[in-house]
Design a protein around this nucleic acid. Structure first.
Lengths: 253, 253
DNA sequence: CAGTGGTCTAGACCACTGG
DNA sequence: CAGTGGTCTAGACCACTGC
């Protein structure tokens, strides 16, 4: 059908080649070559390439060429990352995940006090704007690849003066400390709720996570509850959509 | 400052306006107007608009204009959608969800036998290519908005000749039937595992789900297990990323 | 330095929307 | 019908890569 726009026809053919034959990493013909092959202007060819890029199928390297994208290794996140036994082995959730994948983790932390955003306040059961403890983390591998941007919010009346206000929360991480804080009060860390949503990143976020074109964000908002269903902590995490797979087990109750 | 490409500067300013002041549905200046305002060619303005489009911030309507995107209503999917009590009220997972949201569901089903894809075979515990029952479904609201594309795979030795081979699986859906099949054998439907991943849609998928530009896909692969950890069914679902939020509860075991 | 993608232009014509 | 976005061109110059 030649009533289909030229740039779409080009994209269609290249896409089909990528999805059927092409090996990841294979170089596409240059824009000027494609332009000749299809008898189209270079602008039109670029339009086709932009389309494939937004679909996450190719990587464009300035000065080098356009390449079939290779999927990065996927990190599988299971709910056991939040298990008590994992914490007793001294690992926080993120460290446990990466260790399981045999990679060296690296975390930068910024701890401060500040007003809680409305959206988080609802989950934490506090007034919007109330002052809470905020832990901002950039988590990645030691080779410098950022993997997650996480921000935790905790009520000050719960954690003020504890190790949770330090950059390093110690063995087992924040949740281990929370359990220690709760125990003498006769309460306990009972359950977590994770809310998962998805969207395309803002340019800022794409830079921070070094996201390639056409890669969505996964947002996980985790709320920790005690045995009386009071929220203890809300953790808002942004993850590179092409590097994670989340798995949950659900019993047939 | 001005070494930043013009199309990015335009996109940056419009983006900031969208994220701070603009109401959803507000019309942007026309391409020709922006072109004059910024002293740039129309092609350059279009490049800026394409960028905002790939970020999911705007809707472009041919002949009408460019508008600030409004977020569609979000469907919250909790794990209770898989609960036995829900099924006993006669609802399958999808129907239960939509009913909870007060909307009329609509489902088209295609049932057939065919070879199981490799990826699914691994989860189902059968040989790749083996013949299985395949249930293809397009699920949406009665007003014609498709919401999910789901494909279920079930071993023939388990479900051949049962109501699961019919288009309408009856009260409580496939899982209710599976429980009926298992019970006389002394087995039971014990748990589910959901694996969640994300990517941009292929054009075909975007059309099928009527996805706007810059909207990612959520893929949920659910495996149902019996009490001996044998897989009974694998359901591969694609959902519009801007219409769903998934929530999971995890006990602190 | 040759080859690649990145940015940009001025103008043309088509296709669609809405009054 | 006026106004909007959709498609397309031929050519220019810049910025980066890799030999």
């Amino acid at each position: 059908m030649s009533d289909r726009p030229v740039y779409r026809q080009i994209a269609d053919q290249v896409r089909q080649w990528i999805l059927s034959e092409a090996e990841p990493g294979t170089k596409l013909p240059s824009e000027r070559e494609l332009s000749q092959q299809y008898g189209a202007s270079r602008v039109t060819v670029r339009q086709a390439i932009a389309l494939l890029r937004s679909e996450g199928l190719i990587d464009v390297e300035h000065g080098a060429g356009v390449f079939v994208r290779a999927r990065p290794p996927v990190q599988r996140l299971g709910q056991e990352r939040l298990s008590r036994s994992n914490r007793q082995q001294g690992k926080g959730a993120f460290l446990a995940d990466l260790a399981a994948a045999g990679r060296q983790p690296s975390i930068q932390v910024d701890v401060r006090r500040g007003p809680v955003p409305t959206e988080i306040a609802e989950r934490l059961g506090v007034q919007p704007g109330q002052e809470v403890l905020i832990r901002d983390r950039v988590m990645g591998t030691s080779d410098g690849q950022p993997l997650q941007l996480a921000t935790s919010y905790l009520p000050l009346d719960l954690v003020a003066g504890t190790q949770i206000e330090q950059g390093d929360t110690g063995t087992g991480g924040t949740y281990a400390r929370l359990e220690e804080i709760l125990e003498p009060k006769g309460r306990s860390l009972a359950r977590f709720r994770e809310e998962i949503s998805v969207r395309m990143p803002l340019p800022e976020e794409a830079v921070a996570l070094r996201l390639a074109a056409g890669v969505p964000l996964i947002r996980v908002v985790r709320t920790a509850f005690d045995d009386q269903d009071a929220a203890l902590e809300v953790c808002d995490t942004l993850m590179a959509g092409d590097r994670y797979e989340l798995t949950y087990d659900i019993s047939n109750a």
